[in-house]
Amino acid sequence: SFNTVDEWLEAIKMGQYKESFANAGFTSFDVVSQMMMEDILRVGVTLAGHQKKILNSIQVMRAQMN
């Protein structure tokens, strides 16, 4: 498990989005775990492969939080 959203993004090789997530207010796992595709688009993730990777990881995160 990760301590910060930045660490999580690095771990899934999506570190290039750290600033975008932070600027959009997605700075805690409570918020990130609620993200939908529209949120991912809003933070500027436009590549389908990256969207899928982030969404898949969020689903895993949700499962671990319950």
Rank of each mutant, 00 (worst) to 15 (best):
N56D: 15
N66P: 08
L41Q: 11
D6T: 08
Q64D: 10
S20E: 08
E7R: 06
N23V: 12
Q16L: 06
I54G: 00
M35D: 00
M36Y: 09
V60K: 12
A24F: 13
I12N: 04
F21L: 03
S20D: 11
Q64P: 05
K18I: 09
V45E: 01
K18N: 04
I40A: 02
G15H: 08
N56V: 11
W8V: 01
K52T: 11
M14V: 04
S33P: 04
V45M: 03
W8F: 04
E38Y: 09
K13A: 14
T46P: 04
A24V: 04
M61N: 04
S1Y: 14
G49W: 15
T46N: 09
K13P: 01
L55D: 03
G49A: 15
M36G: 15
K53L: 15
Q34V: 09
A63C: 15
F2K: 05
K13S: 15
F26R: 03
S57H: 11
E38I: 10
E7M: 07
K52A: 14
A48R: 12
Y17D: 01
S57C: 13
E19W: 11
D6S: 13
F21V: 01
S28W: 04
L41N: 06
E19V: 12
Q34N: 12
N66F: 03
F26S: 02
S20P: 08
L41C: 08
T4R: 07
R62N: 11
T46E: 08
S57P: 00
F2P: 07
E7A: 09
Q16F: 07
S57W: 13
V45F: 02
Q59D: 10
G49F: 12
L9Y: 02
I58C: 04
V60S: 10
Q34T: 13
D6L: 05
E38G: 10
N56P: 00
L9F: 03
S20M: 14
Q16E: 10
I40V: 09
A11S: 15
L41Y: 10
Q59V: 09
M37E: 09
F2C: 09
I54R: 00
H50V: 02
K53F: 15
V43N: 01
A63W: 06
G15S: 11
S20C: 09
A63E: 15
M61W: 06
Q59A: 13
A63T: 11
E10F: 07
G44D: 02
Y17R: 02
S1Q: 14
E38M: 09
A24H: 14
N56K: 12
G49Y: 13
K13Q: 14
N56G: 09
I54S: 00
M61G: 03
T46F: 11
N56I: 11
F26M: 07
A22T: 08
W8R: 00
D30G: 11
L55W: 15
A63S: 13
T4Y: 06
E19P: 06
A11K: 08
H50E: 06
I58A: 03
I12K: 02
N66D: 15
Q51D: 02
R62M: 07
S28T: 15
V60N: 09
E38S: 12
L47I: 15
Y17M: 01
A48S: 11
G25F: 04
D6H: 07
M14Y: 03
Q59T: 09
I58Y: 01
Y17H: 04
V43P: 01
M37G: 05
S1M: 15
R62I: 09
V32F: 02
G25V: 02
A11H: 15
A11T: 10
A24Y: 12
S33D: 04
F21D: 00
M65V: 07
T4K: 06
V45Q: 00
Q64V: 09
L55V: 05
V45G: 01
T27F: 06
L9D: 00
V32W: 02
G25E: 04
V60T: 10
V31I: 14
F26T: 02
Q59C: 12
A22W: 10
M36Q: 15
E38R: 11
T27H: 08
L47F: 10
Q64W: 08
L55K: 04
L47Q: 12
I54W: 01
D39I: 03
G15P: 08
W8I: 00
A22I: 08
Q51P: 03
E19R: 12
N3K: 14
G49M: 14
L41T: 08
R42H: 10
E19Y: 09
N23F: 10
F21W: 04
L55N: 04
S57D: 08
R62L: 12
S33Y: 10
E7T: 07
Q34S: 09
F21K: 00
Q16C: 08
D6W: 12
Q59L: 15
I58R: 01
Q64K: 09
M14N: 01
N3L: 10
I54P: 00
G25M: 04
V31L: 15
L41F: 08
L9M: 04
K18C: 07
S33Q: 08
I12E: 04
V45D: 01
Y17T: 01
M36I: 13
N3R: 14
Q34W: 06
M14A: 03
H50R: 02
A63N: 14
L41E: 12
S1C: 14
S28I: 04
A48F: 09
V31C: 09
G49I: 14
A48D: 12
V45N: 01
S28L: 04
R62Q: 07
H50W: 04
L55M: 14
F2V: 07
S28Y: 04
N56M: 14
S1T: 14
M37F: 11
V32A: 02
S20F: 07
F2N: 06
D39M: 03
V31W: 06
W8A: 00
A48E: 14
S1A: 13
I12H: 04
D6Y: 08
K53G: 05
M35L: 11
G25A: 04
K18V: 06
F21P: 01
D30F: 13
S57K: 05
I12Q: 05
L47S: 12
N66T: 11
A63R: 10
N66V: 12
A24T: 05
F29L: 14
S57N: 06
R42S: 10
K52N: 12
K18R: 12
Q16T: 06
G15A: 11
D30K: 15
N3D: 11
T27L: 08
L55C: 08
T46W: 07
Q16M: 13
S33G: 06
T27S: 08
A22H: 12
E19M: 14
F2I: 08
A11Y: 14
I12P: 00
M36C: 11
K53R: 14
G25S: 04
I54E: 00
M36V: 15
M35P: 00
V60M: 13
K18T: 06
T27A: 07
K13L: 11
D39K: 03
I54A: 01
H50S: 03
F26D: 01
E10V: 09
Y17Q: 01
V32L: 05
T27D: 08
Q64I: 12
E7D: 13
E10S: 08
V45W: 01
D39S: 04
T4L: 06
Q16V: 11
D6G: 13
F29E: 02
D30T: 12
E19T: 14
L41S: 07
N3Q: 14
Y17E: 00
N56W: 14
Q34D: 07
I58H: 00
Q34C: 09
Q51Y: 05
E19S: 13
A22Q: 12
V31S: 13
V60P: 04
T27I: 11
Q51V: 12
F21Q: 01
S33N: 07
A48C: 09
M65L: 11
Q64L: 11
V45R: 01
E7C: 07
I58N: 01
M37P: 10
V45H: 00
G49K: 14
M36S: 15
L41D: 05
K18A: 12
T4C: 09
A48V: 12
N56T: 13
I54V: 04
I12T: 04
G15T: 07
D39N: 03
N23Q: 13
F29K: 03
K18G: 05
K18M: 07
I12Y: 03
G44F: 02
Q59H: 10
T27Y: 07
V31D: 08
Q64C: 13
A48N: 10
F2S: 06
S20I: 08
I54F: 05
Y17A: 01
Q64S: 12
V60G: 08
V5M: 03
E19N: 12
W8Y: 02
Q16R: 12
V31M: 12
Q51H: 04
S1K: 14
E38F: 07
M37K: 08
F26N: 02
Q16N: 06
D30H: 14
Y17F: 04
N66I: 15
F2T: 06
G44P: 05
L9I: 03
M65E: 06
S33T: 11
F2Y: 13
F21I: 02
S33F: 14
T46G: 05
G44I: 02
A63F: 08
E10H: 06
N56L: 13
N3T: 12
I12F: 04
R42K: 11
N3M: 12
K53C: 11
L55S: 04
K52P: 01
M65P: 05
A48K: 13
T27N: 10
A22M: 11
V43C: 13
G49D: 15
V5D: 01
D6P: 10
V43D: 01
V32P: 00
W8C: 02
F29N: 02
M35V: 03
K18S: 11
T46I: 13
K13N: 15
K53A: 15
M61E: 03
K52L: 13
S20Y: 07
